[in-house]
Design a protein around this nucleic acid. Structure first.
Lengths: 211, 211
DNA sequence: CTTGTTTTTGACCATTTGGTAAATACACGA
DNA sequence: TCGTGTATTTACCAAATGGTCAAAAACAAG
């Protein structure tokens, strides 16, 4: 038995588990959980199907493992948002980081999007336990910045949603964007656009009057 | 045979085809193409599986039919963007219409998102044939507005992307939003936020200097 | 080399799933 | 009421798929 529950995993175990997870990320992100097959993952990983089931208890466990790892990566930029830093700088840096993640980790973005699209059947607990508290905390920080007059007053929750939406869009809807932009690399121009959009939105005292 | 290719479809045929497509929209939007099963669709439609295959040639054809219908619905708001109208008003109205579609047609939004996420295997031709020309045309209109000084200068392509991203986000990531907003209806507050964000971005002569 | 352990495989299995065929029930105009 | 085309169901099938298992192979240590 692989004995994953305790003690040191062997060199070969680590290597193969990583190969499997990487292959699974490919397949799950491209086809969703139900659309992915163990055979596809096996082929992509260069291992036999039974061999994969030697390292993981089943399809489900592979998926769950990926989602858990993903959650950390995903929360990280929001964690790094520094309440002590300059508000506008911090938020624009957050936008930039998220955009870079879309460019560098599109598979992860799509894995996440797939999961949420399907109603977050496996991730819901994670969202409540990990994301929600962080989200509330960061909304509090942003609200405080606004109350202190350092940022224009907008709804912090929707601000965060709009950052997620606009940045992740470049990974999740890549197929569409490639058609519309005819294959041009969008990251640079997107960065310019998003930076100016959010700077504009958040720079205090410049807002158009709401009526 | 149902003889769908020619002549008048009977009352009962229309009714059943509609029931099937509605059920399929439920199932496909919730589980993606491969994740959906004919049995689920059949149950949801209140018909037997063979009966469904009496009206449609197969799973694929149901999906394709849905996507075709969807394309029209989806392009409609962009078509209605009036080059003769007031630029800012037109674009803000477009944002509003898209947001309302996310609220009123979340299944359609998710069906679309699923398809694009998987690389648009079935919709790619539609995107090139229908969406791309319209997209280019509208980018041209917006660019002209900007050149005429009626809107602030931003990249029209990314402007449209950001409108799509932010509005569709409320349908596609509903599961996440419900967790974070604890079930509050987000549409009203989202509308306020998005209106002010895009008004701010596009109102000429108010932009923060880009360096 | 020998022995004990880890890793890999080939052969299977049960279930699910898209799809078919033939028989049956039904609607409806003559 | 009958007959005819339409609609629906019952009973299947073949392929795909997640998963099992025992045995073989590979490997590490003495």
């Amino acid at each position: 038995m692989a004995d994953q529950t305790q003690k040191k995993p062997s060199r070969i175990q680590q290597r193969n588990r990583r190969k499997i997870l990487d292959a699974a990320l490919d397949v799950f992100s491209a086809h969703g959980f139900r659309g992915a097959t163990l055979d596809q993952i096996a082929e992509q990983a260069g291992l036999s199907k039974p061999n994969i089931l030697y390292y993981f208890d089943g399809k489900e466990e592979i998926h769950v493992t990926l989602l858990s790892q993903l959650m950390e990566t995903w929360l990280d930029p929001l964690i790094e948002l520094d309440p002590q830093g300059d508000p506008l700088t911090e938020i624009l840096a957050y936008v930039q980081r998220k955009l870079e993640m879309s460019r560098d980790l599109p598979r992860e973005s799509r894995l996440f999007a797939n999961e949420i699209l399907q109603g977050a059947p496996r991730m819901d607990p994670h969202l409540r336990a990990d994301l929600k508290p962080l989200f509330d905390a960061r909304c509090g920080v942003i609200q405080a910045w606004m109350d202190a007059g350092k940022l224009a007053q907008v709804d912090p929750r929707h601000l965060i949603f709009s950052i997620w939406a606009t940045t992740q869009h470049y990974a999740d809807f890549q197929a569409q964007i490639e058609v519309l932009l005819e294959g041009q690399e969008p990251t640079d121009t997107a960065a310019q656009f998003l930076q100016s959009m959010f700077r504009n939105l958040l720079t205090p005292g410049q807002n158009t009057s709401p009526a």
